[in-house]
Design a protein around this nucleic acid. Sequence first.
DNA 1: CGATTTACGTAAATCGTTTTACAGAATTTC
DNA 2: GAAATTCTGTAAAACGATTTACGTAAATCG
Lengths: 341, 341
Amino acid sequence: MVVTIKDVAKLAGVSPGTVSNVFSSNRAVKAELVERVRKAAAELGYEPDRAASQLRAGKARVVAVLLPDLDNPFFTSLVASIEANVRDEGFDIIVASSHGDAVEEARRLSALLAWRPAGLVIVPCSDAFVSRKLVSGGGVPFVVADRVPSHFDGEAVTVDNVGAGTQAAEHLVRLGHRRFVVAASTLRLQNIRDRCEGIEAVLAREGLASPTLIEVGLDFDTASERLGVFMEGEQQATAFIALTNFATLGILASANRSGLSVPRDLSVVGFDDYSWMHAVSPPLTAIRQPVDMMGRVIWSRLRRHIVGRSEPVADERLSCDLVVRASTASPPSVGDALRIA
Amino acid sequence: MVVTIKDVAKLAGVSPGTVSNVFSSNRAVKAELVERVRKAAAELGYEPDRAASQLRAGKARVVAVLLPDLDNPFFTSLVASIEANVRDEGFDIIVASSHGDAVEEARRLSALLAWRPAGLVIVPCSDAFVSRKLVSGGGVPFVVADRVPSHFDGEAVTVDNVGAGTQAAEHLVRLGHRRFVVAASTLRLQNIRDRCEGIEAVLAREGLASPTLIEVGLDFDTASERLGVFMEGEQQATAFIALTNFATLGILASANRSGLSVPRDLSVVGFDDYSWMHAVSPPLTAIRQPVDMMGRVIWSRLRRHIVGRSEPVADERLSCDLVVRASTASPPSVGDALRIA
DNA sequence: CGATTTACGTAAATCGTTTTACAGAATTTC
DNA sequence: GAAATTCTGTAAAACGATTTACGTAAATCG
């Protein structure tokens, strides 16, 4: 039905082996034959069957990506970045979502591993990273991204989360804020705990009270709801730090609903950096993760393993930067004085 | 190296064929043997090799998805929806981006087709859909999503774009707006032209002037820039309709930069519906595409072809709905009267 | 009860490539 | 110029699963 290597071989008047050599450039073929084979292949619209090729050659030109959520722009832009990097080298990517569930994660992982991919990128749905032995057993090179377990000894790519928290807190302290709220997705994730740690260290150093910690969950709806409840209650905090993009939205949404104005009544530092953050009013001050760089680093680490080098892992962490826009200002106590004067 | 069907067969004391039958349930196997095989497989951590299985069986449990841009949340949430639908039936998805370039589209398409996927979902990067013959030649069932060429006779899933435009325009007309601006990505796309058509029909019917049409491109930066230039110029429009999500952001960003306030100075109807749209201030009135439903319909169409039925295509179009929030209000001329009174 | 069908296991062929083993021609080496 | 080496083509053996063909035991039938 579909055109095979034999059809091409017959049309070009050579053996299948030669056709294979032309396409895989595994062995030299005389220019004249290359020409003939190419022409025949083009004429028939031949493209080597990946399944067959991979089966025989034992190596796949495909990398698997397993994420907790395909509807979270942070993860999908990571995919976009990885895709852009791998395609240059003829790799395809196959993607799956664990929907934040460890059991499903294990299931999807087995399914992905069944493709015998050249490599795997995984953002685990929990720190436990229960699927670890599943992956290691498969003998497939893998890198864990974003959510890296505490004492992980494998290949990991993540940002300097402590530093990210530090930057956010320092910025707000500098503006004169004294009471902080931190909207974390969930403290069960190491990266989130690290971000908190960065914030707490700054506040402690400044002799300020510990921040009020709110776990807002992993999607917008619950984040929005939980923060709404909080804001309705009596509270004097003026500085809000979000530790994920959905937490950012939750803060904004509930501030809106409570009739609080940003940055007059409260200052907000968001997490991640998306178009909407600088399109809206007020444009958001935020901690930006270097997503694009993450994708690049992930691939370079993975590739090193794929080609066989497995040097010790460098636990270098990418640094985030704080982009200051208009959602942060001095708190009312300070601001009022100015305004009244 | 990795465990094969033979290893399992040996351990379970049966033939490879039997193991295959246990896993593929192609032929009945006695309960006792099933048990033994399952146990052996579990013990060894066996998972059938997809490449081998697909090669022999001739049918793949994978669907390919080709998009213009993996960084556009509309497309990625479409992927999320498709993924959620196909995984229940044991399919995996392999995804690629054409980066909006027709040449790259053709290249990626060949690469995807080389997997001999069970089906293909494509959002073409242009109406010309130049890759069409490539796909048809492959004999792979496919559905074109979102951007469907004018007189397309294949399987297509898109929304009622004319209706979407109509709804947006009618809403604004009802509020008393008379001068319209439409921020379209590019008029070279049929879906965008349809949305425009819906708007123009309403304005014509109401005896209003045609809208000012601005082509803002396909990403946020150019959208924001082009609209900025426009807003700086003298203009009396009060009603802004965005025809894509990036156009929506572009309008917001440039209104902000020009110091215009929404909805006091101008009303905005956005396109698509994301969390940020109801988190920000003012929450955005927008046309919502039923992304989730689109994914479902795409898969059901595709599956029908995969299992062999190829009934005539129903050119049913999904309808969008207008969700009214706070970015639209009566225009200054009307509003002022009230405010002054 | 003998004949026929059904149930179910195994051996071997097969899918479309890549790769190995071999061979003749061309080239290099001494 | 003979021997050794390189170049480049073909035939055939893999890769790991599925499927076909076949055989034996059990079940069903008249």
